[in-house]
Each structure stands twice: as C-alpha cells, then as structure tokens.
C-alpha cells in the first residue's frame, strides 16, 4: 500500500480561527500548515505547546496534539515533554510578551541547554490580547495605553538575546514573506537542538505597520538584508563590510562580508546592525551549528547507568537487619 502524502488541509483542525481579521498570525498559520506535510510525520507525532497571548492560540488551529498552557511557561513544559518523549516532534509557539517578558527565564535556559524543540516567536512588538500595552520589544518612546507619555524601556533584540544564550539555531523571518518563512521553518525543523525563529508579525489592531519599513516595496530594498550561508551579504545597492577595526558596517562599496552561520561573533554583529528602528534588518539564519542536544545527553546517562534495576536490593540498602 502506498501512503498518500499528507496535505496542508490534513493539518487543519475543525476549530474556527479567532484572530482579528487581517492579523499576521493567519499568514503564519497558513505557512506552517502548508509546511508540516514536509516533515513526513502524521499529526499524531507532532506536539505544539504554547503559552498565553494571541500567538499562543495557534495549537487550537492545527490537527496535531496541542497544549495551550500558561503565560511564559511553554519552553519549560516542552522541555519535560521533549526529554521524556524523544520520539515526538515538539514545537513551541510564543510571542514577544510571552517569551521575552514573563517567560524570559525559561526561554534563555531552554536555549542554553539546547533542548530538542523548535520555538516560533511571533514578534509584533505589542501586547495584543490585553489590548495594546507596550512589550519588551516595543521601540523606545512607544505611546501605548500603559505609556501615554511614551515608553522609557529599552527593548530586547530577540536575536541578540538568543545568540547571547548561545542558541544553536537562530533565525528571523517575516509573516508576509511566505517563501522565506517556509525556508526558515524547514531549516529550523531539521535542526537538532533548540531552534529559535523570530517572526516579525503585524498586529493590525494595536501596532499596525510596525514592520512596514522592511515590508513595503518602496523601502524594503534599502532596509532588508537577506542572509544566505556562503553568500556575500549585500542588499539593494549596498553591502555589509568590515571597517578597519573589523567591526561590521553598511557601506556602498568595499569587499562584502560572506555569511557564515557557524560564526557566533559574526552572527551577533549582524544582529546588532539594526536596533528597533529596523533600518538595516537582517533576516534568515543567523546561526546554525551542530551541538549535542540536552535530550541526547540525558538519554545517554540513562543508557550508561548499567547497574541492574534491582528494586528489592535498593530498598534493602547496605545495612539491613532481620527480626525473627
């Protein structure tokens, strides 16, 4: 019997999607659904774990196993699942508030451990579900309901943060660029260890147009830098070069730097090319290296514990005595 390959519709659940019309989450959902058949696994072997926020409703709309948990804790929950069930394909869906504010601790520790899971971080730079407060990725001065005089917070750069935790796979993509999004998802899914994918996602209700600079045809060529492994880093008429001190900078001429996703320093320098103003925004895979996973290390210790599991002997201990 030949197995019929699964299609995107096989990964859709029967639940009505309840995001606001026009939300960037729809595009990401469609891209993920159309990509999942490529994994070659049935929905029964895939688990999506999420936290709280608009993005975290994602699991309800897939036909896989899904666990909609509590605010910020999805990476911790997924860690326990991944470690005990290496047979499953574990995904985490989170947002900028969920992953970087309330759940920041779990995110960095999952990344440093290199637990085998793929984390999709939808970054819309705003709190959507609580109706429009600034988030830890909102730009300085942001005027929101909770910051009528402008935010005085300094934002996180999620890619820099992940690289700082020495994540073994770090990428950035954009909700509206379906082809790029799917290419990044494919590489992230193939990666063994924690893969972090930051997805710029438009919240058309509370932060509409946040990423217009890198989306609009008029401006994107000047702002968007597409990273491709082994290729010179160029965009529009410009390029990324090293100055005399070896620092990266954007220039009109000079020898362009060739992208190497195994070079952590280069990846970090690329992540610093642009702050929240987005004027020079690299997308693509910043870092991709093969390191031992946490799951494998844990499993190795279980395999190495050659001592016979003799429960009776364990309970008896070294110094028993008999009463007759």
């Amino acid at each position: 019997m030949t197995e019929i390959p699964l299609k995107a519709k096989d990964f859709k659940s029967d639940q009505e999607v309840r995001w606001c019309p026009g939300c960037g989450d729809y595009a990401i959902l469609a891209a993920v659904q159309s990509f999942l058949p490529e994994l070659g696994r049935t929905p029964d072997d895939i688990v999506f774990v999420s936290g709280i926020g608009c993005s975290s409703r994602f699991p309800y709309y897939l036909s896989t196993y899904g666990l909609h948990s509590i605010h910020g804790r999805a990476p911790a929950i997924a860690t326990g699942l991944s470690v005990t069930r290496p047979d499953l394909d574990v995904w985490v869906v989170t947002g900028d508030g969920d992953a970087l504010s309330i759940g920041g601790n779990h995110l960095i520790h999952a990344l440093r451990r290199n637990v085998d899971m793929t984390i999709l971080l939808f970054n819309n730079r705003i709190y959507g579900l609580t109706k429009g407060q600034y988030s830890p990725t909102s730009e300085p001065g942001k005027i929101t309901k909770s910051t009528p005089a402008g935010s005085v917070d300094r934002p996180f750069n999620p890619v820099s943060l992940a690289l700082g935790a020495e994540a073994t796979f770090v990428a950035r993509t954009i909700d509206s660029d379906r082809g790029h999004l799917i290419d990044v998802l494919r590489a992230a899914a193939e990666h063994e260890g924690t893969a972090l994918v930051e997805i710029y996602q438009n919240c058309n209700i509370f932060n509409d147009g946040a990423f217009d600079l890198v989306k609009n045809p008029q401006s994107r060529d000047e702002a968007l830098i597409r990273l491709v492994a082994g290729e010179p880093i160029t965009f529009g008429d410009r390029r990324v070069v090293r100055d005399a001190d070896g620092h990266l900078q954007v220039a009109d001429a000079g020898e362009p730097v060739v992208h190497d996703p195994t070079d952590l320093e280069l990846a970090f320098a690329l992540s610093r090319l642009s702050g929240s103003e987005l004027d020079h925004t690299p997308i693509g895979i910043f870092r991709q290296v093969s390191e031992p996973t946490y799951d494998a290390g844990v499993q190795q210790q279980v395999d190495d514990s050659a001592t016979e599991a003799d429960l009776r002997a364990l309970l008896t201990g070294p110094d028993p005595w008999a009463v007759s």
Partner: peptide, 12 residues
C-alpha cells in the same frame, strides 16, 4: 501524544 487517531488540543 503519539497515540494514533487521538490528537487533540487542550489548555488552561
């Protein structure tokens, strides 16, 4: 998870 045919979505 992994049980064929029982994929479901639950949460808090």
């Amino acid at each position: 998870p992994g049980t064929p045919g029982l994929a479901h979505r639950i949460g808090g």
